[in-house]
């Protein structure tokens, strides 16, 4: 990679919008590779520790880089977005693979393998719902993204979005209410 993350953030701060995309790509890729290494530690039903994952990704990307507050701030928001994208890409792939087929007790061959399908479908629905929220109230949607996809704490979210923790709490609750209402209509 020719661009360091710090440089990209500087470029972005200086008004170069494409730097943000490059940074996103960088974080996205790095999340993947860090997650792959962590994967060896997962087993059974244990779920992924997103916070640890994001932290490790951060350390990796900013190795030997000055640990400026701005770096971390931008990084966190982008990491949540990247996590979301990783999940959505996967869910889309899953639901595209889905096939029909009815159960018969004799011929299991005709059955599709769709362990994650239900969750994938629901996630895509949630993704679309969140897209709608983004149009209505962008900040609420961002808070939700950080908390839900990034697994970030209230304080991390407040730091990343440069708002007060109290606002994060209120936005989080409002976004939850909205999502809950939309998905259970």
């Amino acid at each position: 990679m020719t661009h360091t993350p710090t440089l990209l953030i500087q470029k972005f701060s200086n008004g170069d919008a494409s730097a943000l995309n490059q940074l996103f790509e960088l974080v996205y890729d790095e999340l993947h590779s860090v997650a792959k290494k962590q994967r060896g530690r997962w087993n059974g039903a244990e779920t992924l520790n997103t916070v640890a994952l994001i932290h490790e990704t951060y350390l990796k990307l900013w190795q030997n880089q000055p640990n400026q507050i701005e770096n971390r701030r931008h990084f966190l928001a982008i990491a949540a977005k990247a996590m979301r994208q990783i999940l959505i890409n996967y869910a889309e792939k899953r639901s595209a693979q889905k096939r029909g087929g009815e159960f018969t007790s004799v011929d299991a061959d005709s059955l599709d393998l769709m362990a994650d399908d239900k969750a994938a479908r629901e996630l895509l629905e949630m993704h679309e719902t969140l897209n709608r929220l983004e149009k209505i109230n962008q900040r609420q949607a961002q808070v939700f993204e950080c908390r839900f996809f990034g697994g970030m704490t209230v304080d991390d979210t407040a730091f990343a979005l440069e708002i007060s923790p109290a606002t994060v709490k209120r936005d989080w609750q409002s976004a939850c209410n909205w999502i809950y209402g939309e998905l259970n209509r």
Partner: peptide, 30 residues
């Protein structure tokens, strides 16, 4: 109570989604 419902719905959802994360990240660019 409504707020709690919405939160626990979302939290429950989050747990489910994280189990997806495992499979989704298993593919990689290496």
């Amino acid at each position: 109570a409504q707020n709690r419902n919405a939160r626990s719905f979302v939290e429950e959802f989050q747990r489910k989604i994280y189990s997806l994360t495992k499979s989704s990240l298993s593919s990689d660019d290496d």
